[in-house]
Computed example of a mutant assay.
Amino acid sequence: MPTVLLLLVSNLFMTTAWYWHLKGGMTKPLAVVVLISWGLAFVEYCFAVPANRIGYASGWSAAQLKIVQEVIALLVFAGFMVTVLGEPLHWRHLGAFLCLVGALLFLFAGK
């Protein structure tokens, strides 16, 4: 569980680092946006690296860690897309998410 919680926090920072400037930051110089995003990404790494170390030490494979991270990333991004960017969710988003959940189930089957 610590792995999932740490990955959740790291994805909140990474999604913000990658996409915050699309809403209200488009007038800022690109160099400023990159520097701010790097700062956010540094915080993200402070959560992602321990999450992966803890997960791996607990018996998760690298593939399992990556797929869990992708599922969390999509959930976080969907929330960000709707709440911050004001973009609607469509059935295609759900279909893509279900495909990743299927990948997750395949990788954890038999564990």
Rank of each mutant, 00 (worst) to 15 (best):
M1L: 12
M1R: 14
P2V: 01
P2M: 01
T3F: 00
T3M: 00
T3N: 03
T3R: 07
L5H: 04
L5G: 11
L7Y: 00
L7R: 05
L7E: 00
V9Q: 14
N11G: 04
L12P: 01
L12V: 15
F13T: 08
M14Q: 08
T16Q: 13
A17I: 07
Y19M: 07
Y19V: 02
H21C: 04
K23C: 09
G24C: 03
M26T: 13
P29Q: 02
L30V: 03
L30E: 06
L30G: 00
V32T: 14
V33T: 12
V34N: 06
L35H: 07
L35S: 08
W38G: 09
G39R: 03
A41M: 10
F42W: 03
V43S: 03
V43M: 06
E44G: 14
Y45E: 08
C46I: 07
C46A: 05
F47T: 12
A48K: 15
A48L: 13
V49D: 07
V49S: 06
A51K: 07
N52L: 02
R53K: 15
I54M: 00
G55Q: 10
G55P: 09
S58Y: 07
S58P: 06
S58R: 07
A62Y: 04
Q64F: 04
K66W: 11
I67Q: 12
V71N: 10
V71D: 10
I72V: 14
A73Y: 05
L74R: 01
F77N: 08
F80E: 03
V82A: 05
T83H: 08
L85N: 12
G86C: 13
E87A: 10
P88W: 08
P88V: 09
L89S: 12
L89Y: 14
W91V: 15
R92D: 09
H93W: 14
H93E: 12
L94W: 08
C99M: 01
L100H: 09
L100D: 09
V101Y: 03
A103L: 09
L107P: 04
A109M: 13
